[in-house]
Structure formats: structure tokens, C-alpha cells
Amino acid sequence: MALLSTERVTMRFGGLTAVSRLDVRIEKDEIVGLIGPNGAGKTTAFNVITGMNTPTEGRVLFAGEDITGMARHQIARRGIARTFQNIRLFKEMSVLENVLVGCHLRLHPNLFEATLHLPGYRRRDAEARAFAMDLLREVGLESNADELATSLPYGKQRRLEIVRALATRPSMLLLDEPAAGMNPHESLELMHFIRRIRDQFGLTILLIEHHMQVVMGVCHRIYVLEYGQTIAQGDPAAIQNDPKVIEAYLGAQ
């Protein structure tokens, strides 16, 4: 059974159909790419999966459960974490605090317990801090832990966003253009990084990306969207030779 699947998901905004009858099936441990020209509906698909938008039609199933129309935090609790195309860090908080917000789910603070710093809360908070610092160390951000998140250079902010998502201990990670703004060398590093966290944390990954080098290098399977329609799917080699995909990207001959 697929870990994540969408069944004929359609998302309309007024007269615009951003995503039409999307059928995606992602098995556990896969790295799947979602590509397509600008405005193809890739981010909308992410938003539907993570509960930012409720689909007009269709269902989203995660680990056998119907999660269509659930609130964002409920979906996060079930193990789907994501990053954002335009980085969304908590601006007025330190790097460590950003990751700690990711630990929120496991911390379960309630107002009284947290305010009074009761022993149970203190123990969980200490664990969360240790876990967050481990994660930061893992990606080489531990020396920045006390800095303001937005004072980090762009590449590190991207990495911090991924770490923050990892802090929720997800089983599925959605990456929205992780390589945006990166040079070829950084993209290569990112590919290794994605593979590494997949193995280390037992993740299933769905990613949106425009860097074809990254997509072709890291993904097992790829879905291609254009104007909300799925025009092709398959392994990287098949996608590269698919006439419809070539037409969508380069125009008809």
C-alpha cells in the first residue's frame, strides 16, 4: 500500500483550475519528484497535501487514512512535514528556537505545565533541546544556534528550514524547491544531503524542483504537471525522453 496517495484531487480557485485530477502514489522510502513549468500547480498540490488548501474534489490518503480537509497541525501530527518555496522561518527567533518549534509536537506543552516549569515538562524540554542541537550539529549549524534565524545566509536558511521540518520527526517530507538559488556545487551537496537524511531518518520524500540535475540525480520517479494536468510520470530516463515533457519545456518542434 502506498504511503501517500491522492485520488483525483482537483483544486479550483474561482474559475482557475490549479490542479486537475491529480493521482499520485508514493511508496515508502521513495524519493519522488514533482516537476513542471511555472504555474503548473506543483505548490498547490503541496498545499492540498499539507492542509493549507482543502481540495475542491478528490481525496488525500496518508498511511491508509483519509486526511483530506484536516487542519495543518493535524496533518503535521500524522507525520508529514514540509518546507516552503519562499523560506518561512520564524524571523524574530533564534536558529535553535526555530528548530524547537519543530519539536512542539513531541513536547506537547500545555499552558500551566509549561509556565510553571513542572518536572515532566522540564524533562521533555531538555530532551527537545538536546535533540534540536543534535539535528543542528548534523547539518553544521550548531555554531549558529543562538543567532537570529534571518541573519543566516540564504543557503543556511534553506538548510535550517529542512532541519526544522525534520524536528517534527516526520515519516514523509515535502520539499518545495530546495535547490532554488543554489549554484551547481551547492546543488550537488544538496542531493547528497537529501539522500542522507532519507536513509538516516527513514523518510519518504516528495520534492518540487526546477534544477533538472538535482531532480534526475536524486529521484526514483517523477511526475510532470502542466496547467494542472499530469502529463507524464515514470523514472528519470523515461521522463527525459517523453515527447510531451519535451514539448512542455521546450515547445513543439
Partner: peptide, 10 residues
């Protein structure tokens, strides 16, 4: 700081 990201973090 960011309602959408906060929601996505659970």
C-alpha cells in the same frame, strides 16, 4: 512570526 509555518510544524 509565521502562522502558516507554525501550523505546518504542528
Amino acid at each position: 512570526d509565521d502562522e502558516i509555518a507554525a501550523g505546518a510544524m504542528g
